[in-house]
Every structure is written in structure tokens, then in C-alpha cells.
Design a binder for these strands. Structure first.
Lengths: 215, 215, 215, 215
DNA sequence: GATGAATGAGGCTTCATTCAT
DNA sequence: CATGAATGAAGCCTCATTCAT
């Protein structure tokens, strides 16, 4: 991208030590927002605490930068896929779910989503930022995918907004679980089996094949 | 002596724990475990900080008491329903989901579930307690319900453990959402519509009516 | 003693539950003055905390009562022995040392002495009381015993005040040790062997030759 | 910048620990371990409470550092003297006792020994540390000194372990006294006279006859 | 007399943020 | 640019003492 000007955070980005963002990502994921100490971020990045403040105004801005650096780009790719996919929407659905798992759900980035669900209410400004930059864009992408399936006649004519939430639920669930009880070594959820089951259950409910109404 | 003004010894011992538990529930739900200040719990209950420690050893025991007082009994009722329900499993399914919404999901108790997902990894002992007293019992109850449907021929012969997780996902999702981004006044999920959609999608996928395999 | 009037503390003594004093003694000895909680004293005595305050103005007075009840009487007996002993002063010396061990040093009362050495400087009023009621009387008794030996020609004509302190040292030492490092299960001092050695060394001296001057 | 007024960053890192250790030593000696407030240590050192934690993990580590900095080195010197002394063991004995008085007993360091005797049972980990680093080394040094005297024929062939305790007793006693009743301005022990008496009595014995057995 | 619920000051420790060098 | 020493507010918990019942 050769825009002649860059947004503020992009302009500062080049100079910012990537080590700080990497360390921050690791620690935010491991401990959560509130429990992550900037001291630890700095020392994991091999710099002093003061240096951290040269690049990031405060903890909040550091977190936002982590999100911009790591989560937002993946979202862009998913949007591209939905826009340009050729094939059945069921296949697109599988592609998106598995792609999400490969790039987010199965990686440490899932910890960011968990963290936001966990702590957003204590940090409203961070929540606002994340909602705008990540959640609303992600939701829109899922909704477009469902609409594609309905338009092509592959899916029943359901309420897209609600179905979108139903689709997101297992993904959110999986990310939460990985970083909460799973982390405590309790009976783990098997992600692959879980996702395949979800796809199975969801598509068999969604496909326009004849079935009795649930209600 | 009927002094016209309130004295510090006026309240009764029997009432105190309940008042403290009520205040603790409210604040744990509102702010999470870590961010809840015992000072605030005490003053919301109308007592001093020290008084709280007359009834609860420490923050952890206070939280456990909140769970035991509020969450565990509801679980017992649900177990009874599953055990004794007469009617189709689809109806039992609806009963359980809506019952959960009335008693947990739609009440502030949902905040407890959210809190545990959010902070369990920072408080392993609390997590262990919650897992044993709530999660494993809840999971077992859902699993028994699904097995009932399979045994009666109402449901396809699916992997019960995985399906159990799929069933829990939207409930967990709803509870998380209510206390995270929803609390920030962002675009809310409509719980009733969401749940009905979920039941619809899930049952239409589950019922043994003929349908194309997803894979 | 049928004095027609009693001192203040004696007057209250009859009514005072001995259980409180017994519990206080045990806990003061076990934990020290500062670390003993009046809560624990009361509950070990089977009464409420408020009751304790009916009998003792505060912690300090409770402690003083413990000393008056347990330590002071033993001192009186020792004084009687020194006054009335018939036999060599070396035998009296042995009698006093072993008597001290039987009544104080080898019993939990040694904990009171240890406690006072340990904490008196943080509680000047308690220290003043203990010094007057116990230490100065005990010192005087030892001094009288040494003077008896010098007067009879059994002992060299030493500085009585200083020798008195030298005599007290091993006893104090033993009491301190029992309740400090010994309590931590470290290499214990054997009290009987230690005392016999002390008596031997004290009465006979270390040097094998009869009496090169020490200075 | 040579601002005329003192800034909070003026002091050097290298100087801080020493200032804190000096303040800690003073307060530990004056008040004991438990009664010493870290707040007071910090403000006596001219820093804020938080600064103390930059240099010492917690109260326990601060205390250990005080011991390592002040007590342990003196012990090393004494060990050297015992190892290399040329002259009679009686002279070595005097050297050690007076050296102890000059470096420990007569200085505020004696307060550390008193403190440990006083509070070790309430702080087992601190006690363990002190026992290993100070007491067992000190005991071994005294024992070697006594063995030297026995081997050379200067001393009777006594039980070294017990005699070691007898030798330590007056020193411990003196340290205890200085920081307990002596601190309350009660009738003081004269240390020099007391020690000389002890050396005299210990080396020569009390009985005027050349050595009737004590038992 | 007896109770025991209640208080509140005070202690240890943590950590985001500041700023002289 | 970079450093890292320093701050101080805030949190959890303890316990001697009070006093209505």
C-alpha cells in the first residue's frame, strides 16, 4: 500500500519495536488484560519499562496496538474470501470455520477474544474499540456469508442476524474454553471433533432439505 | 430500648450473611472476581470491612458461598426435571433451555458463569471448585438429556459429548455477551429470538428426519 | 493468710474464671504476648470475648494476672528455701537450680520469662511490672545465696552482683532456647546435662591448674 | 541540571540498599521483627514504601539481607581468629569473648540475636535461615576453641557440646538483657564487669578448694 | 453477669505511571 | 532515544476493643 499518508498508529508502527507487541500479545493472552503487568511486557521484550511508554501512551493503547497488529489483518483476509469464493456456500462455510480455526481459534490470538469477553466491561473504551474494529466487521462477514447461502437457495430463509449469532457461539465458546477451564487442565474439549460436529449439526439444520419445524 | 436512630448492632446475625451474599453477588457480577473490592461488598451490605470477615474467611470463600447459595440449587432443580420429565425429549430440550434462561441466563446469575470463564485461569482453586460443583454437574445433565432422545429414537445417534458442548455453546455465549459487550451498550443480542433460533436450528439438525449428511 | 483486707487484684481473683488465666498462660507461652489473640484466649477458655473484658481491663492486665497467678508464688517458695536451708551452700545452689528447673525452667512457665525478654521493650508498662514483681525479687534471692556461700567461706570472695548475673545467665538461656530455636525442632539442648555441666563448671571452674588469675 | 532543591530521583541506586539496610537494622533492633513497619523502614531511609520493594522482595528477605550484611561477616572473622590464633587457649578465649563484645554484643547487632531468640518461633523460615547461617556456625567455632584447649591440656576434658552452650549463655543473656529490661532503663548490667566475671568464673571456678567434684 | 456482632485503624504488598538523567 | 528509580494510591486481611442486648 503506497498511500501517501498513513494513519497515526501506522505512522508510529514502523519504529515500534515488534518485540514489545509480541511480548504484550503473549502476556495479555496468558494472563488477561488487567493481570498483565507492563513491567513484565517490557522485560520480556528486553527493554526498560520507560521505553514502553515511549511507544505506547499507556496500557490501553498498547492493547489496541496488539489488536491492530494481529487480529485486524486476519479479518481482512476472511472478508476477501467471502467476497471472492466460488463454490457452494456450505463449502464456504466450512472454509471460513476452518480458516478461523487455523488463523485465530487454534492460535494464541483466540486469547484476545477471550480477554475481551472477559474484561471489556471493566474497560469500556477498550471494549468500544474492539467492538468497532473486530466484532462488527466479523459479524458483517458472517452475515454476508449466510445471505449468500439463502440467496442461492442453499439455506433456508432464516433470520440472518440471529443465525449469525448462533454461528458465532461455538467459535466464541471454543476460544473461551481454551483459555479458561481448559487452561486449568480440566476435561478438555476436542476442537476438531467439536467443530465438525458443529458444522454437521448446523448445516443439517440449515439445508433446505425437508424437516419438521422445531417450534 | 427503642432508640429512634439506627445503631451499629441493630442488625441480626442471621440476616448478615444473606445481605453480604446479595451484595457480593451483585458486585461479582458487575465487576468480576478480581475487580470486586471487599470494601465495596461490605459497604453495599451496610457493614464495615471487618464484619465481612466474621462470616467469610476470605474473598475466595465468599465467592464459593455465592455460588453455593445461588447457582447450585438451580442445578439441582434442572437435574430433577431431566430425571422426571414425561413427554418428548424435544419438549424436554425446550424446557431445559427456557428454564435455564428464566433461572440463570436471564438473571444476574449469568454473570457468575461469565466471571468464571473470564477469570478461572487466574484463580485455579476457585476454578476447580466451580468446575466440580457446577460445570461437571451441568454437563452430565445435558448429556443425560441427549441420551434420552437418542434412546427414544427422537435424536440421531450422535456423539453425545460433543453435542453436549454444542448445546452449551449458545448458552455460554449468551451469558458472556450479556456481561461483556452487551453491558457496553453495543448492539444487543435479542435473547428470546436467539434462543428460539438456536432450538430450531439444533433440533432440525438433530431430529432423525431424513437429511443429507453434512460432510 | 487471713488478712482482713486484700489487694485489688486479689479481691477480684476469686471470681475470675481460672480457665481464662489457664488459657492465657498457654497461649502467651506458645505464641508470645503480641501474637496472642484475645479471641483465642476466650474461646480456649470456653467463654466469649466480651466476658474476658469483664474480668480483665485489657490484654496487659490479663498478662499481669497470669504472672501473679503463676510465677510470683514460686518465687516466694524459693525465697523460703534460701532463708531456711540447712547444709552447704553448694547443696543449696544445686537445690535452687534444680528447683527452678522443676517449677519454672522445665515447665511452660519458662515461656513467660522468654516472652518478657522478647517483648518487654515494646510494652514498657508490662516490663516495669515484671521487673518489679519477678526479676528484682529473683535477683535478690540469688544474691543472698551467693553471700551465704562467701560468708561461710565456701565461695571465693567475688563480686556478688556480677556473679548473680552469671548464675542467671544459663537459666535464662535455657528458657529462651526452649521457646525459640528449640521450638523449631533444631538441634536441641539437653537441659539436664546442660544444667549439670553448668553447676560443675560454675562450682569448679575450667582450668585444670588450681587458679591462674583470669585477667 | 543543578536544581537547588532535592528531587526524588537524586539518590543513586547503589546507595539505596545500604540506606535501607541501615534503617532496617536500626528498626529491627529497636522494635523486633514483627513490630517493625516497612513503612517506617522506608521513611527512615528517606524513600517511599514502594521503593523498598524494588530492592527487597518482602520483609523476610529484607531481614535476611540485614543479617547477611552485618552479622555473617563478623562470624567469618571470628572463625579466622580461632583457626590462626597463636597463644594459650585461655587468651584465645578472652580474645573471642571480647571480640564478640566489640563487634556484636556491644553494638546494635546484639539486637539481631535478641530478636531471633524472641521471635523465631513465630517465623519458622526466618529462624531456619538464621540457625543455618549464624547459630550453627557460631557454635562450631566455640566448640573448636574448647577442643583446642582440651587437646593442649589447658582445659579439663569436659563435654564440649554442653560447655559450648554454657559459654554461649552469658553472651546470649547479655544481648537479651540489653534489648529487653535494660532498654526500659531498669537496673543495668555492667557488661565489661559482667564479662570479666564470667571469664574468671569460667576459667577458674567458684569453689575455693582445688576442685571437689560438683556432683 | 454474659454475649458476640461490629468496628476501623493499621500492616504488607502490588503496579501503572512519571521524569531526571 | 532510552533508562530505571521512585512514587503512592489501593487492595486484602487482622485484631484489640466496644457496647446493645
Amino acid at each position: 500500500m503506497n498511500c501517501p499518508f498513513k494513519k497515526r498508529w501506522e505512522r508510529r508502527k514502523e519504529a515500534r519495536p515488534q518485540e514489545l507487541l509480541a511480548a504484550a500479545l503473549d502476556l495479555f493472552v496468558e494472563r488477561g488484560y488487567s493481570a498483565t503487568r507492563l513491567d513484565d511486557v517490557a522485560s520480556m521484550a528486553g527493554v526498560s519499562k520507560g521505553t514502553l511508554y515511549l511507544y505506547f501512551t499507556n496500557k490501553e493503547e498498547l492493547f489496541k496496538a496488539v489488536v491492530r497488529e494481529n487480529v485486524v489483518p486476519v479479518l481482512g483476509e476472511a472478508e476477501d474470501i467471502v467476497e471472492n469464493f466460488e463454490g457452494s456456500t456450505a463449502d464456504l462455510f466450512r472454509e471460513i470455520i476452518h480458516g478461523w480455526w487455523d488463523r485465530i481459534g487454534g492460535t494464541k490470538l483466540s486469547g484476545i477474544a477471550k480477554l475481551m469477553m472477559a474484561e471489556s466491561s471493566n474497560f469500556p473504551e477498550v471494549a468500544q474499540f474492539y467492538y468497532e474494529e473486530v466484532i462488527s466487521r466479523g459479524n458483517a462477514m458472517i452475515a454476508r456469508m449466510l445471505e449468500r447461502g439463502i440467496k442461492s437457495g442453499e439455506f433456508r430463509s432464516i433470520d440472518v442476524t440471529q443465525a449469525m449469532n448462533v454461528v458465532c457461539a461455538p467459535m466464541v465458546m471454543l476460544m473461551m474454553w481454551k483459555h479458561s477451564f481448559n487452561a486449568c487442565r480440566m476435561e478438555p474439549i476436542q476442537p476438531e471433533a467439536y467443530l465438525n460436529n458443529f458444522i454437521d449439526l448446523f448445516l443439517n439444520g440449515l439445508l433446505s432439505a425437508p424437516s419438521a419445524s422445531a417450534q
